[in-house]
Nucleic acid binder design. Sequence first.
DNA 1: GAGATATAGATGTCTAGACAAATTTGAGAT
DNA 2: ATCTCAAATTTGTCTAGACATCTATATCTC
Lengths: 245, 245
Amino acid sequence: MTDQDLSRGTGTALWRQIAERLKADIVAGRPPPGERLPTEVQMAGDFAVNRHTIRRAVAALAEQGLVRIEQGRGTFVQETVIDYRVKRRTRFSENIQGHRREPSGKLLAIREEPAGEAVAKALEIRKGTIVVVVERLGEADGRPLSVASHYFPKARFPTLPEAIRDSGSITVAMERLGVGDYTRKITRVTARAARAADARLLQQAPTKPILLTEGINVDSAGRPVEYSVARWASERVQMVFEPGT
Amino acid sequence: MTDQDLSRGTGTALWRQIAERLKADIVAGRPPPGERLPTEVQMAGDFAVNRHTIRRAVAALAEQGLVRIEQGRGTFVQETVIDYRVKRRTRFSENIQGHRREPSGKLLAIREEPAGEAVAKALEIRKGTIVVVVERLGEADGRPLSVASHYFPKARFPTLPEAIRDSGSITVAMERLGVGDYTRKITRVTARAARAADARLLQQAPTKPILLTEGINVDSAGRPVEYSVARWASERVQMVFEPGT
DNA sequence: GAGATATAGATGTCTAGACAAATTTGAGAT
DNA sequence: ATCTCAAATTTGTCTAGACATCTATATCTC
């Protein structure tokens, strides 16, 4: 696969040269995201070095988040950054499917609480009014992408918690409640240091920042039906805004 | 130094056990920040393992930012400097969590005394009025960061001492007393030579200066509810002010 | 066909030794 | 006292080999 013309004794460690070589290949799509690298023994043969030298190189790539190592299975090219397109109609599952990945998610919690300042303002209700809060972990190919908090006015959707628990999907639940067609009115994005809990959920190094998005969805009459705050793994997601947002 | 009773063949890799052991020692101040760890060969002897096993453990600590490795010199305990951001709503635990460290603290003392000149002026009460004083040691990752004296007007919060003893947290106690939302009105920062007692509590050399911050928190009506004087380990903290302070 | 069991293949850990590279230390020359 | 240079010390790299552990596959049993 790769010819092994490494330069020995030039001041650059072999494992660094190998890491560079592998990285260049990966960036060029060899192998493509999600695919497996040759085995350590195989690469050791290709580069004519000891297996441990390969391990050192691969460990460096893993630290950079370029590959993912799985014991007993192999080393895989990390699925690259996903472009999350923010358009008029933004649904998590549609977006991820567009990238030929398996969307999935876990409902972390559903609870009710009085609206705080920001939530109240977004939903155009009075502060203290009860809202339904849904915490959801969004995943693609089994890897966490986002942690989102969705806020809905309880008065308008009193049966929302049951509907979501039933269907497991926010979109489906909203449809059942007669609000199948809602559109995104506004989205704000900032970057922040990750809080410990979010970093853990997102399986991201605590040192790396997270993307923070705020969004308001409105029904056909223009009334706010949902306000959401999502934290994204900046390693694996990048936001793309399109005209008309 | 460290006895080498590692458990072999228990499912936990030796290097992980060693890393844990070293980390615990470092957090406990052995060796203190800036000081050198034993050499790899020495530790290999102490733990009765191969030098490479030690290297693996130390590499893990370096990745966590706990130590710094210098070729030809040795491995040193990293001196961590924490940015303490002073904003409108300043709470110790939030701040430290933002830095991905374990916030913790010890209540050193709770007592009552007549207000002195400075305290009286800050709290807008008459000199000699009884105030509740709470002394607290703030820590991050088990290392002392600050010693703070908090002053509260006794007349307004007569049950504060019990509330704090109960909850162990000033913020929680204040919330229970109906003052969940207080904001920082002013913060002053100076540097000073450390007093012996503070230097000892902060585990800082007595020759090094400390940062001194004074703060007044007011309730939504603008009345002062707390005055605090905190002494910070200048080695490990640095203040950051943001617009709107 | 379903389930248990063996087997092969992959990464993980640990040991051992040799030499390289960077830094500090100390002896010697001036 | 200061400079120079060699030696000692300490971390960095590479090789070699043996097992352990985890995963997927194939085979056998029922």
